[in-house]
Computed example of a mutant assay.
Amino acid sequence: MLALFLSVLCSVCIVFIFKYFARFGVDTFQALIVNYGTCVVVGWLASGRPSLAPLLAGGPWLAAAVALGGLFIGTFYLVALTAQRVGVSAASVANKMSLILPVLFNLLVLRLSQRPYTFINYAGMALALLAILLTALPRRASASAEGAAATPAAGWWLPVLLFVSSGAGDSLLNFASSSLLPDAATRTLFPLVTFGTAGIIGLVLLLSRGMQQPFAAKNLVAGFILGVPNYFSIYFLILALGNFGNDGAFVYPVANVATILLGAVGAGFLFREQLGARGRVGLATAVVALMLISYQEIVAAF
């Protein structure tokens, strides 16, 4: 459970860092590229400079890592595109609701659940989705303001594509963790190759568009700061999946809902963000969802 909590904590840190990006005028795409390079370096050093023998040998795990790296950078681009053309709420909801795909993939394809799923667990998952909707959708006032600048009907396919891309990435990570990473060496190199691939793709895209300005110092610093929790969010997520028998139907809902809860509390302290009535109901729903999804673990602990 510690690895899952640390993954959630790192994910919340990433959200807060992005918040500061806007405040300090950081070029997000430049910082993102630096972030992926930082992930590789931090992972390399934190892992004790692992052997590259599995990388040279190749195999299905390497192809999965490269594909996941492409999904990482592609999902981020879709988040930005959806937020710009459709709306921030649509991007947030599509990204978070994508947990449906890895849950279904785990239950119907991988069948790796460590415990029988009962009606209580499924009710918890349904409440988790409701909690995401309640907390991700904007208040009525901001929704109207957002709607004035967005054209949802024209870009309906963007949230759908984001939903699929984000869910496919989580499902691929679950599959790789369960079937393609047989030893510690490949488990160490897998996130490094994933982040390295994302960084290379991002750099190629940046150069192909023509760099309008060189990498500014603040973008380099911001990318480095982002890269540390970004690497460990994936590292601890892979560790958490392994600790729970690669049961993505348990790990992903708990991780998403816990991120919402911790993020909301942290945002209240750091940024004085106030939740409306619907947001408070959403957080209360998230707490109940967590208890229902993990009630077997709670009972076992006591």
Rank of each mutant, 00 (worst) to 15 (best):
M291N: 11
L275D: 15
R111L: 08
I234Y: 09
A198Y: 09
G70Q: 03
G266W: 13
S171G: 03
S177Y: 04
A284K: 01
I120Y: 08
R115H: 13
T75Q: 15
A150C: 03
V66L: 15
I298Q: 09
L127M: 12
M291K: 12
I33N: 13
V86Q: 11
I293H: 06
A46R: 08
A136D: 14
V265R: 01
A153K: 15
F215N: 03
F302E: 13
A64M: 13
R209H: 12
V12G: 04
A53M: 12
R115M: 07
A128N: 03
A143Y: 05
V42F: 10
V281M: 09
F224T: 13
P60W: 14
S294H: 12
Y231M: 09
L107A: 06
L107W: 12
A94Q: 07
L180P: 01
G37C: 11
F250K: 14
A258W: 05
I100E: 00
A168I: 05
L81G: 01
D170W: 05
L9P: 13
L237C: 09
A90H: 11
F224E: 11
I298D: 03
G268M: 09
A3D: 15
I200K: 04
V204G: 08
G69E: 03
S208K: 10
N230Y: 02
A141G: 08
Y252S: 04
A216L: 14
T285W: 00
A80H: 13
W157T: 08
P102D: 05
V254I: 15
G223Y: 04
D170V: 00
P253C: 04
K96N: 00
L172H: 01
F175K: 04
G69L: 08
S294E: 10
A80S: 09
L104A: 05
S165T: 15
V299R: 15
V40N: 01
A301I: 10
V265H: 03
F18M: 11
M211W: 10
A255M: 14
A3E: 15
M97S: 12
E146S: 05
F232K: 06
Q84R: 15
A154P: 07
M291E: 10
A67K: 03
A91T: 09
A57I: 09
A63E: 09
S89F: 02
T75V: 13
I234R: 00
T188Y: 02
L52D: 05
G167E: 00
L68T: 14
V109S: 00
L107R: 12
Y295G: 06
I73D: 02
T151F: 01
A31C: 06
V221S: 05
L292T: 05
S142W: 01
A148L: 13
L189Y: 01
P138M: 00
L189I: 03
F24Y: 14
W156G: 11
W44K: 03
R187I: 12
K19Y: 10
A267V: 10
R278C: 05
L45M: 15
P50A: 14
L137V: 02
L9G: 10
L207Y: 12
A65C: 04
Q30E: 07
A222E: 06
V40R: 07
V281P: 01
I14E: 06
T285C: 06
N246Y: 11
L226P: 02
A22Q: 15
L192W: 03
N121I: 03
A240V: 09
T82N: 13
